[in-house]
């Protein structure tokens, strides 16, 4: 893993939480996937969302950058209301353009990497900085190479995604999100689609990122990572937060029955 970190990610100066989710509700058809969820993530905090599949943790993450719309509640990132604007005492949905603008400062890493398959690793990283932020190609390229070095893939700049292993693709995807200089990074089960021996490299990059002070919201099944890196964990079940608190406390002494059941099951699988 690269240790030559030339760029340090420091938490943005925000008063109050970096991510502030208040009483968010979300339905898919008749199914209520989020039932009035609250979540506050402070600048520089690493927050892990845990829970069984179908508990709503991925949906909650996708609501934060508006990949899913919400039915009720409010979401703020870096103090800015996401998806809506308040005018004359009413909330109006933002235009597509404004939503796209808000997403620039919210990095996201997907379970299935989603690298653009027709572009090299380097082109994947510079696409949005040059196209959306209008950074000059040379500046974007220099920064991209720096980021590739940071995730340990400096020699893979000209490789297409299909020429990279899953772990390498995911690290490129992390570099791609970082190239936008986001205020917060969202990770949606970033290691779930990886072969076990490739998980460590990706978690290593995320660990470095956390150490640099990046605000991170991570949906994961990696209890070991949560215990080691996360500041707080939030445990969801059936679309509700059933337990939350400091990672060290919740993971060692869970209070809620479903948290206990989940942890013992996951730990048994890991053993």
């Amino acid at each position: 893993m690269s240790t030559t970190t030339t760029t340090t990610t420091t938490a943005r100066a925000v008063s109050g939480p970096m991510v502030d989710v208040r009483e968010v509700r979300k339905h898919f058809g008749h199914i209520e996937v989020l039932k009035s969820v609250d979540l506050a993530v402070q600048p520089g905090e690493v927050c892990c969302l845990l829970g069984r599949s179908g508990s709503g943790k991925s949906t909650l993450l996708r609501c934060i950058n508006q990949l899913e719309s919400i039915d009720a509640g409010e979401i703020f990132v870096a103090g800015e209301r996401i998806g809506y604007e308040e005018k004359r005492g009413k909330l109006h949905p933002l235009s597509d353009r404004a939503v796209a603008r808000q997403r620039r400062s919210i990095g996201m890493v997907f379970q299935r990497f989603n690298l653009f398959s027709h572009m090299t690793a380097l082109d994947n990283i510079i696409e949005s900085p040059t196209g959306v932020l209008r950074t000059s190609r040379s500046t974007a390229k220099a920064r991209a190479l720096e980021l590739l070095d940071r995730v340990g893939l400096a020699d893979r700049a000209d490789h297409y995604p299909r020429q990279l292993s899953g772990g390498q693709q995911q690290r490129v995807a992390i570099a791609r999100a970082l190239a936008m200089d986001p205020a917060v990074m969202l990770f949606d089960e970033p290691t779930s689609a990886l072969d076990p021996e490739l998980v460590g490299d990706v978690l290593g990059v995320m660990r470095d990122l956390a150490a640099d002070g990046m605000t991170m919201v991570v949906v994961t099944h990696e209890i070991g990572f949560a215990r080691e890196v996360a500041d707080t964990v939030v445990f969801l079940d059936g679309g509700e937060v059933v337990e939350r608190g400091a990672a060290s406390e919740v993971l060692t002494a869970p209070e809620h029955a479903s948290t206990q059941a989940f942890l013992s099951r996951v730990l048994r699988e890991e053993a």
Binding site: N65, R97, I106, G107, N114, S128, V132
Partner: peptide, 9 residues
């Protein structure tokens, strides 16, 4: 989704 998450229109 990945492109949208990167702020592309």
């Amino acid at each position: 989704e990945a492109a949208a998450a990167l702020g592309m229109g």
